[in-house]
């Protein structure tokens, strides 16, 4: 549970703090570590840094991606087109809304679930598996199921008609707002289990004496949860918030597989937009320009994350 990852000299809370110091007199003078990190560096630099550089280069071109076609150099024209592209801004807006909604719902559900599971519950293990299983299943295998449930003749509409709510039955995936809701629902379904596990672990760390003291002072269940447990899980909440932000930027599988980014760009995210621009429209240069924008945003989040780590590491 160490959050001091990017602060290499900080004492690690994993139990090694006292031992970390004397190593200056240990192996350091004798062994050169460079060969040890080389394989990892080669794989990561070779693929990821190469890709970043190459994407940067292609982003200045007008090119259809065929090796034999001569690309035209455009300079920054792809970027100026991007800033004037309504779909690009739509994708960003979707990412923001998607992030706020999925994060809020997952946190609320995960926290509630964790608190309930720490109470006296019968068949706890079964509930845990039910909530956690979606986390390990591939969106690619589950997307057909979500398409089926929200199909015009799918389970949801059948259910609504059966209970007499015919008015609510609709073509869920054909409407922009409802399609986005389905994409969010699938994401929440998948990741609430992880949120739950993390809150569950955080709550196990809370000293029961603190809770007992609160009860002696007359705090009820809800009051204890809100004023004691929730603030004490703050570290987990913050970690999940950053994780969710990066996750939202990376979103691809669910919208691509459930709605292909449609209808009419209503569920377009940066990832799906890059994919369409590149493979359907064969506009490699423009796709690369959007990739650069995505990369910058992701890196900004990464920096934000390590700043937070640094602060918590000092605390």
């Amino acid at each position: 549970m160490s959050l001091s990852a990017t602060l290499p000299d900080a004492a690690t809370p994993t139990g090694g703090a006292p031992a970390a110091r004397p190593r200056r007199h240990g192996l350091k003078p004798t062994a050169n570590g460079l060969p040890w990190i080389l394989p990892a560096v080669v794989v990561v630099v070779g693929l990821i840094y190469f890709s970043i550089g190459y994407t940067g280069y292609v982003s200045t071109l007008d090119w259809n991606g065929f090796i034999l076609t001569e690309p035209t150099f455009l300079g920054l024209a792809n970027f100026s087109e991007m800033f004037g592209d309504p779909v690009f801004w739509k994708a960003l807006e979707h990412t923001a809304v998607f992030y706020v909604v999925t994060f809020t719902v997952q946190t609320a559900l995960g926290f509630t679930f964790a608190a309930l599971m720490h109470s006296q519950v019968f068949l706890r293990g079964v509930y845990k598996v039910v909530v956690f299983v979606p986390t390990v299943l591939a969106p690619a295998t589950m997307a057909p199921v979500f398409r089926q449930i929200f199909d015009a003749d799918g389970q949801l509409n059948t259910f609504l008609r059966a209970v007499g709510l015919d008015g609510l039955a609709q073509t869920w995936l054909a409407g922009g707002t409802t399609a986005m809701a389905v994409v969010m629902l699938a994401t929440i379904w998948q990741w609430t289990g992880l949120t739950f596990i993390l809150f569950y672990a955080a709550m196990s760390q809370i000293d029961t004496e603190v809770l007992e003291a609160a009860r002696v002072d007359g705090a009820g269940n809800l009051r204890t949860l809100w004023s004691i447990v929730w603030p004490m899980c703050r570290g987990t909440t913050v970690a999940l918030a950053t994780l969710g932000l990066i996750g939202a930027l990376k979103t691809f599988d669910w919208p691509y597989l459930i709605t292909k980014g449609g209808p009419n760009y209503a569920t377009e995210f940066l990832g799906t937009y890059i994919y369409h621009t590149m493979l359907s429209e064969k506009r490699f240069g423009y796709a690369a320009a959007i990739s650069v924008a995505l990369l910058v945003l992701a890196l900004a989040c990464g920096v934000l994350m390590s700043l937070r780590n640094r602060r918590e590491g000092r605390a």
């Binding site: 990561v44 970043i52 994407t55 990376k250 890059i274």
Partner: peptide, 16 residues
């Protein structure tokens, strides 16, 4: 250098 690659979205790798 390794950590910077941590937040890398798959989609950025597509073109290269």
């Amino acid at each position: 250098a390794l950590l910077l690659a941590l937040t890398m979205p798959e989609a950025v790798l597509l073109t290269p």
